[in-house]
Amino acid sequence: MSTTLLISDLHLHPGAPEVTEGFLDWLDRRARGVDTLYILGDFFEAWIGDDLLDHVDQDPSGNAALALRVATALRQLTDDGTALYLMHGNRDFLLGHRFADAIGAKLVTDPAVLRFADEPVLLMHGDSLCTRDEAYMAFREQARNPAWQEQVLAMPLADRIQLATALRQQSGEATSNKAEDIMDVTPEEVERVMRDHGVTTLIHGHTHRPAVHEIEIDDQPARRIVLGDWQPGRGWEVEIGPDGDPVLREIALQPGRS
């Protein structure tokens, strides 16, 4: 029987080893053997370039060592037959084909329409739905510009590490000063995107507000399923089985594995 799992917003980084350990255990206990796994963005707290994997001994932050360990585990998963797809988030928008190839994954565009049990489902990271956050939307346009990305990736590794640290700090300061509704999705944008793609089911992350929202699109019942972020001891997944019905589930993460 076909099973697909979707996760988002793990924000893996050296400062949260419990989440990394919980994820690796989840891979072994839960994801191994499923047909397909989708990671819908913000898998890493920051990603400064695929060449990070070449500089484990030159990266005092520990990000390279973490990335290599996670990449090894994901390669084992795909070698065992699970199809893996990565979507960019607002934190790891520099993930590239080299990293995807190394783990046996494919990069998927945002948004992406898939079919489950012959029903179309729209997958997104979710940041593009937060149109009321004008400052972020301006940054998003810059960060997704290929010319800007090329310029950043041409910087020395140490400079990219500093840039990533500065961007995270700026993001944290900006978030603390924004109203809650500004950082959530814009309902009108959700309806527009779902209508444009001809779907009645949308699955996304980004907002860290896990829920199933029952809505209407042109007088037809629809739903927006929001994946939650991962914390020590707790994560979120959506499972889609052979019947094509997505199920949002909170999952208990083990503290680590030997």
Rank of each mutant, 00 (worst) to 15 (best):
L5H: 09
L10F: 12
L10I: 14
L12S: 04
L12Y: 01
G15T: 09
A16V: 14
T20N: 00
E21M: 03
G22A: 09
D28L: 13
R30C: 05
V34T: 15
V34I: 15
L40F: 13
G41M: 04
F43Y: 06
F43L: 14
F44L: 08
I48H: 01
I48D: 01
D50N: 09
D51L: 04
D54Q: 07
V56G: 03
Q58S: 07
Q58F: 01
Q58T: 01
P60G: 10
L66R: 09
L68D: 15
A73Q: 09
Q76C: 10
Q76L: 13
G81C: 06
T82A: 04
L84M: 07
D92R: 00
D92C: 01
L94P: 00
L95H: 02
H97W: 10
R98T: 12
R98F: 02
I103R: 02
T109S: 15
A112F: 07
V113T: 11
R115A: 08
F116D: 03
A117H: 10
E119I: 08
H125V: 03
G126D: 10
D127H: 04
D127A: 06
A135M: 03
Y136L: 04
A138K: 14
W148Q: 11
W148H: 11
Q149A: 07
E150C: 08
V152P: 02
L153R: 10
L153G: 04
A154S: 15
M155K: 14
P156Y: 14
L157V: 08
L157T: 04
A158Q: 12
D159K: 15
D159H: 13
R160A: 03
I161M: 11
A174C: 08
A174M: 14
S176Q: 14
M183E: 10
M183G: 05
V185I: 12
E191K: 11
R192D: 06
R192H: 10
M194F: 03
T201G: 11
T201C: 14
T207S: 12
T207N: 04
H208F: 10
R209D: 06
R209M: 07
E214S: 11
I215R: 15
I215P: 00
D219A: 15
I225A: 09
G228R: 06
D229K: 10
G233K: 10
W236A: 08
E239W: 06
P246K: 11
R249N: 11
E250W: 03
E250C: 10
P255M: 07
G256W: 06
R257Y: 06
R257I: 12
